[in-house]
Design a protein around this nucleic acid. Structure first.
Length: 113
DNA sequence: ATCTTGACCTAAT
DNA sequence: CATTAGGCCAAGA
């Protein structure tokens, strides 16, 4: 029952400020390593849930592939830069240093929440 | 109702 | 190295 989407939102909410994660990392944390696409799609539907910092979710390369879905064209980058990140040409600098992996930062798949 | 597209990722060629 | 193929499943046409 779209539980997957809600689980995605719960995780995205837990991303610390100034850190970012990837679609695949979230999908894998939820036990669906091949459903990374759906994470992105969940973000598309996340506009209803304003507490979800969708700008902290980028693709595996640290590239801001979803920036076109934000109002304006620079908003996503601005939000991230305001949190201390450096972005050049839609690419997060030192992406691995700011990468936040739910698989290691959170307890393994907290079911039920 | 079917067909296509998509904020993606991994593995195989 | 680069390219392709497969998987996932929700919306839009």
């Amino acid at each position: 029952m779209s539980q997957f989407f809600n689980q995605v939102y719960e995780i995205v909410k837990k991303i610390p400020q100034g850190r970012v994660t990837s679609y695949g990392a979230i999908a894998r944390y939820l036990g669906h390593p091949q459903s990374s696409r759906m994470v992105g799609y969940a973000m598309n539907a996340a506009h209803n849930h304003h507490e979800v910092p969708a700008h902290r979710v980028v693709n595996r390369n640290g590239l801001l592939t979803g920036k076109h879905h934000f109002p304006g064209s620079k908003l996503m980058q601005q939000l991230l830069e305001s949190e201390g990140l450096t972005i050049k040409n839609d690419q997060i600098s030192h992406f691995e240093d700011f990468f936040w992996d739910p698989n290691t930062a959170l307890p393994p798949f907290e079911i039920g929440f």
